[in-house]
């Protein structure tokens, strides 16, 4: 019962800390854009926190540069358990277009374990939200079902899921 409650709270309140490891800003502004009225991450209970101490999810963007990787690693260590890492953008997944440059180590996963990869250059804010959902789907079977459906149908119109957010399935015109 208590486990269930804790699990529920973790699903409902994933606070994120945004970490730029040397990207081109494209993904960064899309992460910030996903906070703004059009996408509004707060409806999932997500808040962006400036300090890794308060965060549950590290959202890392950009290829890992040689100058910053020690600090990135320290930030990862400072985040309290349970923690997750979301690699947003192709650079964060693998180094992307900068792979092979002398000052780039590669993707985020060269320095810290990554839970979910969100490819795209940059991914749409929707895709970032989907990445977060994908991450949460490992905690909550209800979201897992939704994610599966989204993946299967791809871009479709008739997906109906209730109870994901407490706004119900209110449809807009």
């Amino acid at each position: 019962m208590l486990d269930k409650l804790i699990n529920w709270s973790r699903v409902k309140s994933p606070w994120i800390c945004h970490l730029n490891t040397g990207g081109c800003n494209g993904c960064d502004i899309e992460v910030v854009a996903s906070l703004t009225p059009r996408f509004d991450l707060e409806r999932f209970g997500i808040l962006i926190k400036g300090t890794p101490r308060h965060a549950d999810v590290l959202v890392a963007t950009g290829a890992m540069t040689r100058q910053i990787w020690t600090r990135a690693r320290r930030i990862y260590d400072q985040t309290p358990e349970p923690k997750f890492v979301l690699a947003v953008g192709s650079c964060a997944c693998s180094g992307g277009v900068f792979r092979g440059c002398y000052n780039v180590l590669g993707g985020i996963d060269t320095v810290m374990p990554v839970n979910v990869y969100v490819p795209g250059c940059p991914p749409r804010p929707d895709a970032i939200i989907f990445g977060v959902l994908k991450l949460l789907s490992s905690l909550d079977p209800k979201i897992a079902k939704l994610v599966e459906e989204l993946e299967r149908k791809g871009y479709g119109k008739d997906i109906e899921v209730k109870g994901l957010t407490d706004h119900g399935s209110r449809k807009r015109d």
């Binding site: 529920w8 409902k12 309140s13 409806r43 209970g45």
Partner: peptide, 13 residues
């Protein structure tokens, strides 16, 4: 904005 049980979930988490 956040759902109604949001502060509660934050605290529990």
């Amino acid at each position: 904005g956040p759902p109604i049980l949001q502060p509660f979930a934050d605290i529990i988490k």
